[in-house]
Write a protein that binds this DNA or RNA. Structure first.
Length: 306
DNA sequence: GTGTTTGTTATCAA
DNA sequence: CTTGATAACAAACA
């Protein structure tokens, strides 16, 4: 599940490798995942040079050069299982078969299970869109569950999306103690639900929320407005620290996340509660509880968190 | 067939 | 209008 650190890792890698490249062709294998419709989508992107890659929360924003016409932006949201894999060299496809044919032949030739987990070769059966760049680079957009999307918007639409859907970035000065205190004070929901809300704070997902609450010693069920100043302060520091550290470690791979080079994230080694239900707390030895909260799997230590 | 996985949105209620 | 709770979506696996 790509959250802020995973999306940021992808953003940085792609920024390094594909800025300035021009789109030569597009292969859309899952038309439902894009908007506007295929014809318009292709028309806008064809021949465009990529000029910038930004991120807001978990959303990637690709900018292209539009010297003569009105500018458009490509938004990519990976949701749960989306991947962006960039391969520098052109993939050889024998006998002029399309990539779709290649995927089908692989599917026939190999057992289903071999392709069910993280896959390190592309294209594969979860490849939904292929961007080919002039000079040979290829960007593969994969998604096992087809939750992810690619959306082209103009600047007006972009601004309204960014303005209305996202709270402060956890690593920006806006994410201050004052901000978090006033946010928490006026909310009557669980602290976990609040942290998952992108309109409150941008970029946190289930993994980093559980980890942050553990580090801050706060139970996920606690009502946001019940936190005392010291707890809010601990929580802010925990979030800030974990997000920074996770970016440094190139994100967390729990099930399907891989970066744009096909590599797994190292932060998985530092997880203290997420995915550790029923195991001993690394701090105190009590058993980690796994329950359901805000519709999500929720992990915490009943002894360390109060 | 059932339950589980999660980021986001739709929907409904207050 | 806002907030909050919950279901729904999609696909695969145990």
């Amino acid at each position: 599940m790509p959250e802020l650190p995973e999306v940021e890792t992808i953003r940085r890698d792609l920024e390094e490798r594909i800025i300035g490249k021009k789109i030569e062709s597009l292969e859309v294998l899952a038309p439902k995942m894009i908007s506007p419709k295929l014809k318009t989508f292709k028309k806008i992107l064809f021949g465009r040079s990529l000029s910038k890659i930004e991120r807001r929360g978990k959303l990637l924003i690709f900018s292209f050069l539009f010297p003569q016409t009105k500018a458009y932006y490509l938004l990519i949201h990976l949701k749960m299982t989306g991947q962006l894999i960039y391969i520098d060299k052109r993939i050889k496809i024998a006998g002029g078969h399309s990539s779709a044919d290649l995927i089908k032949s692989k599917k026939r030739g190999k057992k289903e299970s071999e392709y069910s987990k993280v896959v390190d070769e592309v294209p594969n059966k979860h490849t939904r869109i292929i961007f080919r760049f002039m000079g040979g680079g290829v960007l593969y957009f994969n998604d096992l569950r087809k939750f992810a999307y690619l959306k082209i918007v103009d600047s007006k639409e972009l601004n309204s999306i960014l303005l209305s859907n996202y709270g402060p970035e956890p690593l920006s000065p806006d994410f201050s103690l004052t901000f978090l205190e006033s946010l928490v004070k006026k909310r009557r929901t669980s602290i976990k639900a609040l942290l998952l809300n992108q309109r409150a704070i941008a970029g946190l997902g289930n993994i980093y929320v559980d980890e942050s609450l553990f580090l801050a010693g706060i139970r996920p069920q606690r009502l946001a407005n019940s936190l005392i100043k010291m707890e809010v302060s601990k929580l802010r520091r925990a979030i800030n620290h974990l997000i920074k550290k996770a970016i440094k470690e190139r994100g967390t791979t729990f099930s399907t996340y891989i970066d744009s080079r096909g590599k797994q994230g190292n932060f998985s080694r530092f997880l203290k509660v997420y995915g550790r239900g029923g195991k001993k707390c690394l701090n105190c030895g009590h058993l980690i509880v796994k329950t359901k909260l805000a519709g999500r799997g929720t992990h915490y230590c009943p002894h360390c968190q109060r």
